[in-house]
Simulated assay, not measured.
Amino acid sequence: MSMKIAHRTLDCFEVFMRAARPLTLTELARELDAPMSSCFAQVKALRERGYLYSLGSRRGFYPTQKMLAIMNTVARNDPIMEMFQPVLADLRDRTRETVVLGKRADVDRIVYLALQEGPQTIRFTGEVGAQVGLNTSAIGKAILGELDDDELRENIAQLDLKKVTRASITNPRDLFNAIKEGKRRGYQTTVGENEDDVMGIAACVTVGEEPFAIALAGPVQRMSELREEHAKKLLKACRQIAAMQSKVLDGLAAG
């Protein structure tokens, strides 16, 4: 039950994000697909904690800025993101493509931890917190590429190799060979494997004992033409993080 309540609370804020306006109790219950009584109890709890406020019975409810204030404080004190963000921003500026930082979320998926969109009109867009299959993302391939051959085969055998696009790799042997090719090349790629007409280039950097991956993503044609140039800049960014991490980790240990 506690897991269900947690999910519904998070869903509540995402509903307000999508609606971008105040919602009545009836509208909120409908969007959450929840009984009116459960929704009423949830709204009551969030109001008591200062996360929602009422605009009147006919105008509904809307989130206060309490969650924003909390998350801004959390973000300002995240030493790992503080280390990554300037490097990601610099990589975005030098390539003019969207830059994504990701990490393995569970057996089958990676999660986007940070995203800096490129300035070009036609670009890859995404959102922090989005989860993507390991087999269809360059980030996933980069993280899998850190494993030795036996571990890689074992991990691939556990994956649910879902077909997201026509180009998605769903055969275990083909995925193994693609990752091995990427390891020889020094970086991993996807071409239309998670989204049609989007190419990703990714490389892994280990912080402490945890593998993170940085990816560049953009339209296939543009990325293909600049692949080698972009890959050099990407690998340089990973080396920058590797060189910086000892100072950050030492600070965490001292704290």
Rank of each mutant, 00 (worst) to 15 (best):
S168V: 07
Q131C: 03
T26V: 14
E127K: 15
P86S: 12
A114F: 00
R30P: 12
F124M: 15
A203V: 04
E193Q: 15
T98R: 04
L101K: 09
Q131A: 11
P172K: 14
A20T: 08
V111K: 05
T9S: 09
G133I: 00
K247G: 14
Y53N: 09
L23N: 11
F13H: 04
L161H: 03
H7Y: 08
L216F: 00
E146F: 03
G182R: 02
L88I: 09
E228Q: 09
E210W: 02
V248Q: 06
S137D: 04
L68V: 01
Q116T: 10
E151K: 14
D250N: 15
V15I: 10
M223V: 13
G60C: 03
R8T: 13
T190Q: 04
H230G: 00
E154L: 14
L91W: 00
D250T: 14
L234K: 01
T95H: 09
D150A: 15
A254C: 13
G182I: 01
S38E: 13
V100Q: 06
V128H: 07
T189S: 10
Q245Y: 10
S38T: 12
L52K: 01
E48A: 14
L134C: 05
E82C: 01
P79F: 08
V248F: 08
L46Y: 08
L175V: 03
Y112M: 02
F212P: 07
S38G: 07
G192T: 08
A242V: 09
L25W: 02
L234S: 03
N171I: 05
Q131H: 04
S137N: 01
D250Y: 11
P119S: 15
T24I: 13
L91I: 06
M36K: 14
L23P: 07
M3Q: 14
K103P: 04
T26F: 13
N171P: 07
V198D: 00
A217D: 06
T125Q: 10
H7W: 08
I122C: 08
G140T: 01
E146Q: 10
E209C: 09
P86Y: 02
L25N: 01
F16E: 03
K44R: 14
V198A: 03
L115D: 03
L159P: 00
N135G: 01
Y187Q: 02
I80D: 01
Q85G: 07
R30Q: 14
E127R: 15
F61D: 00
V43S: 10
V43R: 09
A20N: 13
D197A: 12
V198F: 02
F16T: 04
F40E: 15
A130K: 12
D196Q: 09
G102I: 05
A20Q: 12
A19E: 13
C238G: 06
K4L: 12
T9F: 04
S137M: 06
D174I: 03
Q188D: 11
D250R: 14
